[in-house]
């Protein structure tokens, strides 16, 4: 993991402040982190601590005030937004094709898209417009669109939030299957410690504002063997849980 050749992203002493009517609000303070190829990094922190701001800086959507963001020239970014950002005038299939065609020829894009639509149960809705889909289906489409470009770095901002248990499990399974197949890296924002310990290789714990990285938890157990019944994993889960409760106090 420390091999610099496989480093996809490096943030170096990042600071971010927002101007408000009441004055300046420092959101991020001296954040340094790296993301390596084929790893899942979960970022856990209290509500409103600036997790989405951090992900937006990672993606390049917003600039940092200070510090450096280095991203591999080979990195292909995909972003699963917290609220689906779908084009309302395009059908389900056209929404995916819209981003795919920026990377692949149509003939190459179609089989990838079709497979993902079938695996997520969206195939029957391929000609529907987003306004005809439920919230869960829109979120599924958002994830499918991100996976359909075969990213090397997938950014996910609380992608399973407000989904029912069954759908959440199904989408996590899909993510891990694609992760195993395509070997991309994931930065996953979550405030669910269970999700973090079951999916991630590393968990970064953030403080409240001004946000810093307080701890880093390594999860070495093979993902397929992970269960909260395992004493070591449960201990790590409890550690994260305690940290969140303490920060939220």
């Amino acid at each position: 993991m420390t091999n610099t050749a496989s480093c996809l992203l490096h943030l170096n002493h990042i600071h971010k402040t927002y101007s408000q009517r009441q004055g300046e609000l420092q959101v991020l303070e001296d954040i340094s982190m790296a993301v390596y190829a084929h790893e899942i990094v979960a970022i856990v922190g209290p509500s409103g601590c600036g997790k989405t701001t951090l992900l937006n800086i990672i993606s390049g959507l917003i600039p940092a005030d200070q510090g450096e963001r280095e991203i591999s020239s080979k990195a292909r970014l995909a972003y699963v937004f917290q609220e689906p950002r779908l084009l309302p005038w395009l059908t389900v299939e056209a929404n995916i094709a819209f981003v795919q065609h920026n990377y692949f020829a149509p003939a190459m894009a179609a089989p990838i898209r079709e497979r993902l639509l079938m695996e997520t149960g969206l195939w029957a809705y391929r000609d529907a417009y987003p306004s005809q889909l439920s919230g869960g289906m829109k979120q599924r489409l958002e994830i499918v669109r991100a996976l359909a470009i075969k990213p090397s770095l997938l950014l996910m901002d609380e992608p399973f939030k407000s989904l029912d248990m069954a759908l959440k499990y199904q989408l996590q399974k899909l993510l891990l299957a694609e992760y195993a197949r395509e070997k991309f890296a994931v930065v996953l924002i979550t405030h669910d410690p269970q999700e973090a310990v079951l999916l991630a290789d590393r968990v970064l714990l953030l403080s409240d504002k001004p946000t810093r990285i307080c701890h880093e938890v390594y999860l070495e157990m093979p993902r397929k063997d992970r269960t909260l019944k395992d004493a070591k994993l449960y201990q790590q889960y409890e550690g994260i849980m305690e940290f969140i409760l303490k920060v939220n106090e």
Binding site: G60, L61, L77, A78, Y79, R85, W89, F98, N102
Partner: peptide, 26 residues
């Protein structure tokens, strides 16, 4: 919706496509 414009930029959408697929339909 600037969120859609951001999304399209992130997915490296060229300017011509931005006009035909985002600005004009909106």
């Amino acid at each position: 919706d600037q969120h859609l414009v951001e999304m399209a930029k992130l997915y490296r959408c060229p300017n011509r496509k931005m006009i035909t697929k985002i600005y004009l339909p909106a």
